[in-house]
Amino acid sequence: MSTASLNRAFALLLWRDLLLAFRRRTELLNPLLFFVLVTTLFPLGIGADPALLRAVAPGIIWVAALLAAMLSLDSVFRSDFEDGSLEQFLISAQPLSVLVLAKVIAHWLITGLPLLIVAPLLGLLLHMSGASIAALLLTLLLGTPVLSLIGAIGVALTVGLRRGGVILSLLVLPLYIPVLIFAADAVATSGAGLPITAHLSLLAALLVLSVSLSPLATAAALKISLS
């Protein structure tokens, strides 16, 4: 099929998912509320000592972001699977991996990107310095798409299962570890006033790798789950 129709299908699917999300606006808040709630639990558990909180803040916020992203993954294919439109994607005239990429980008725009809006607030809650909050935003910007891309593989593998959610975390969380390590450490390092270009380049590398490879894996997984 010509690239024109490919771009049109890509844009169409992106428009459709954003429109669907817009029509159920209230659900957009769920990942954000979860993100804030989980982060506020930690000081209650660890105690309010600012120095201690500042030390553990990067790890806490990034683990909370990771969990928020993972919990919102189920919506990527679940509703399409139940009403049969996922089958229509499988037999569309466009390669499935491109359609999958459109859906994952839409999912990131709906659930991943908004985390950046709330992140500075949480940074203040945990006494983080200005530099580390800036680093937090940068790492979230680079990291959350990777979470959506890799998570989509897990969702595609478990879309046909009745209780796939439990297994999804076991499949996906180990694959999130590199993002967590580089991102959390970037925030901690910038807090100490050191440059974090190495971390950001590694995160960018993970992003490029997952943008190019994971849609293929997700498409293959969908074809198997629906066979």
């Binding site: 180990p174 450490d185 997984a221």
Partner: peptide, 25 residues
């Protein structure tokens, strides 16, 4: 079997990345 094959392939691609990031960490 075919679904686990996909997961194993994705896993094997991630093993060196995980190992490197854990070494770094």
């Amino acid at each position: 079997a075919r679904a686990t094959a996909i997961l194993a392939i994705v896993g094997v691609v991630n093993i060196p990345i995980i190992h490197y990031s854990v070494e770094w960490w």
